[in-house]
Computed example of a mutant assay.
Amino acid sequence: MIRALKFSPASRMHHGFAWVSIFCFTSVVNAAVSQSMQLQIRPQVTARCGENVTLMCNFSSLKQMDVQLIKLSLLADNKTEKCEYKNDQADGNVRCESTDKDSYQTLAMILTNIMPVSEGKYLCKVATNVGVLYNHTYVKVQDCSGSSDSFRNASHAVCSFSGIHPSGVVHWFWEDNNITNATITQQDRGQHGLYNILSTIREEEDKLNYPYKCLLWIPSLNKYLSSQEVTSSVSQKVKSSESQEGNSSETAVKLHWICIVVEILMLNFRM
């Protein structure tokens, strides 16, 4: 027959006091360890497209410690942006550099020609013989203006914006009227995280002789990033015709004067 163990009130109080003591001792030790180590990194870094960005993971300690690992990496699936302490290397647009001076260790990640694909949260992790520290920074990429182009014929007009970041919306205007609701816009994101936007509007007979204006609006920045005027195809033909006529008349005048000069020279030669 098995008897259940029973503890007296005094015994239970003794065990409770022991657990509280262990918890307090552990908390004090952890606090002392955390105060003896520091891990510093900028909380946020903002860069423009194509710039070089350096992320610094700085570790320091009041006492000599065995640093087993310092790692800086981008927290995202299928991303290769990472650096490890004392493993200096260059891989694509990522270069890693380490420095060690007394009780200070630094791990630097240099991102060259940064693109939106490298945007995100980077985690710095330090492991020593007495504990582990974590800190993070967020990298934001902006002002990727890219390029723009337009096309217009008798059936439709097109505006395109390539290599854009952040994502945008195309606004169309005819004279002072916003005609964006009559357009069809498509966009896709390329391998570098840049957006390509194509917007089309069908031509109407009463608008053929007047230019459109299309502007790229970036909601996250609350501003227009780019604009272009889509010239009327009819006016382009008129200008082209006028230019050809002007060139023809100019050529005729030149030929006329050449003939006169030749005749004068011939008369002088005969005399």
Rank of each mutant, 00 (worst) to 15 (best):
Q105V: 12
A10Q: 15
R48H: 08
V45L: 09
K86P: 04
T185L: 01
C259G: 12
S60T: 15
N268C: 07
A18M: 10
H136Y: 13
V130E: 11
F17G: 06
L62E: 14
G193W: 03
V67T: 13
L267A: 04
L133P: 02
T106K: 10
S162W: 02
V169I: 15
R202I: 05
F151A: 02
V67M: 06
I114T: 03
Y210N: 13
V141L: 04
L107P: 07
E175W: 02
E84C: 07
T99F: 06
Q142C: 02
V53M: 05
L133I: 03
D176K: 00
Q186G: 08
D91T: 10
N52R: 13
W172G: 04
E263W: 07
R3I: 14
T180V: 12
Y134D: 11
M271A: 10
L75C: 07
E205T: 12
E245I: 09
I197S: 03
T106G: 03
L55K: 02
E229S: 05
P43F: 00
G190W: 00
S220A: 10
N178R: 02
Q244Y: 06
V130W: 02
E203W: 05
W174I: 06
C96K: 08
L62K: 15
N52M: 06
D102A: 14
H171V: 13
M109N: 04
S248T: 15
V234L: 15
K82D: 10
L62H: 13
E119H: 05
T200N: 00
T137W: 00
G16R: 09
V253G: 03
K125N: 07
V230H: 03
P116F: 03
V29P: 00
A90M: 09
S145L: 13
N177M: 03
A157C: 09
R48P: 01
T46D: 02
K125L: 15
M13Y: 04
Y224F: 08
V117P: 03
A182F: 07
T46F: 00
N178S: 02
N87D: 14
A252E: 09
S150A: 08
K213Q: 13
A31L: 13
C159H: 00
S167E: 14
V94P: 01
I164N: 07
Q187P: 01
M1H: 09
V234P: 07
D100W: 06
S199F: 00
P219G: 07
N178Q: 05
L265P: 01
A157Y: 03
R95L: 11
N268G: 04
S98A: 09
I22V: 15
T26E: 08
M1S: 12
H165M: 05
E119P: 05
E119M: 14
N153T: 10
A4P: 07
R202P: 01
S233E: 11
P211H: 10
Q186M: 11
V28Q: 11
S249P: 01
S232K: 08
S148E: 12
C124F: 05
T54H: 02
L74Y: 00
L107Y: 01
R152L: 06
F23M: 13
S155P: 01
T183N: 07
S233F: 12
S227Y: 02
Y104P: 01
E250C: 10
D100R: 05
S98L: 12
